[in-house]
Design a protein around this nucleic acid. Structure first.
Lengths: 215, 215
DNA sequence: TTGACTCCCGACCGATCGGTCGGATAGAGT
DNA sequence: ACTCTATCCGACCGATCGGTCGGGAGTCAA
């Protein structure tokens, strides 16, 4: 056991993560997954009951990584603005840590096969719920404290997901726009700053603040 | 001919668009496409040489719709802020017009099969390039005129794509966050306003402007 | 009537899909 | 020596995949 410092199960999960990220659930055959870790297809079924379960475990592992990176930041008791900045940084770090992460996540958000039947889907649901709740809570507190504008919290959560997950999942298109890979260290740093600046001040300089009719 | 006011070719494209949007390129069989328009698989090959060509034509058609909606706005000669607002509105209208649009687009951005070999891929490349160039030009002009902050234009293009395409592609997750379908009329209107407000003023109230020379 | 053309169908092809099954190998505990 | 368990393999299954082929039905022009 542990012939290569990783158990077969973990090697399978790693390979499946990379492949699912590149070609999606339907686009990857179990044979390809197995052979990319030096096994044969039928051997996979000693570790996972089905392709759907393997997929769910891959997704759950990714979401857990993000949750673990995000939770301490969102639970810290600094002000909303600083928590937002650090949250953006933690989220981007989690996405940039392993190249397949963002792409896999974006695909899973758009995949609509019914994996809900699998019991492993509960882990996915749980981690996703905690991440979304945490982001929503931060935004709501900031709005209630008057530190953030009175934005729609759900819409802002969507914007944050789009600005992070989509960006690092954009692959060739992103590289074509930026002129270099979206995951190279400098562009990751730049992404954090650009997104934080946008959240701080928007795009338009000195835009007249919207007249508000309430206290 | 024109038995249902649409040619078979157009009906095939419509059906394929909806199916590719839902389950992706690899997840859709030609048999399913054919039967959803009342044909048999082999009949498709009288209209399209291969599955890859069908896919490329579907994508090209979607990008053309967006380009047609965006071009007049981006070419108008009003100020950058108003052009930005109208561009956001036109882009969102194009995405919300047909439900499969955003999801199909997001999938195509993340799909990395080599469709480039097909000659139809040129239409895709052309339309995509025009859309991206138009957005980039608007942002660059705004920055040079001092109306926009000195943002990274490519990063801002990415953010705009994420905030629009991702949002309307998010399906169940978006509906879960918003409490109602992302494509319902009211939420579409709200999305425009939320995004425009974010671009105008950011998220944080009265954030101190960044000092240009930093350590 | 005859071709020519368009549109469509059913049968068929090799390949691959997810998944099952029986057995081979090896290590650990007794 | 023995069994037990974990791990892996090869053969095999029915179904489906993208794609080909020959031909039938309809229309139009000559």
């Amino acid at each position: 056991m542990a012939s290569d410092s990783l158990t077969s199960r973990e090697k399978i999960l790693d390979a499946a993560e990379a492949l699912f990220a590149r070609r999606g659930y339907a686009g990857v055959g179990l044979r390809e997954v197995a052979e990319s870790v030096g096994l044969v297809k039928s051997s996979l079924f000693h570790h996972f009951r089905s392709k759907a379960q393997l997929y769910c475990e891959v997704i759950a592992r990714v979401l857990d990584r993000i949750r673990l990176g995000l939770a301490p930041v969102l639970d810290s008791d600094v002000g909303p603005v600083e928590r937002l900045d650090r949250g953006v940084e933690a989220l981007i770090d989690a996405l940039a840590e392993h190249p397949p992460t963002a792409r896999l996540l974006l695909r899973s958000l758009v995949e609509e096969d019914d994996f809900d039947s699998a019991p492993e889907a509960l882990r996915v649901e749980e981690a996703l719920g905690e991440i979304l709740d945490g982001m929503g809570r931060l935004l709501r507190e900031g709005v209630e404290a008057g530190v953030f504008r009175e934005v729609s919290v759900p819409h802002m959560v969507q914007t944050l997901i789009g600005a992070t997950v989509y960006h690092f999942a954009s692959g060739d298109l992103g590289e074509r726009l930026l002129g270099r890979p979206v995951l190279c260290a400098e562009e990751v740093r730049r992404r954090k700053r650009e997104l934080q600046d946008l959240l701080h001040s928007g795009l338009v300089v000195n835009f007249p603040p919207r007249v508000r009719s309430e206290a």
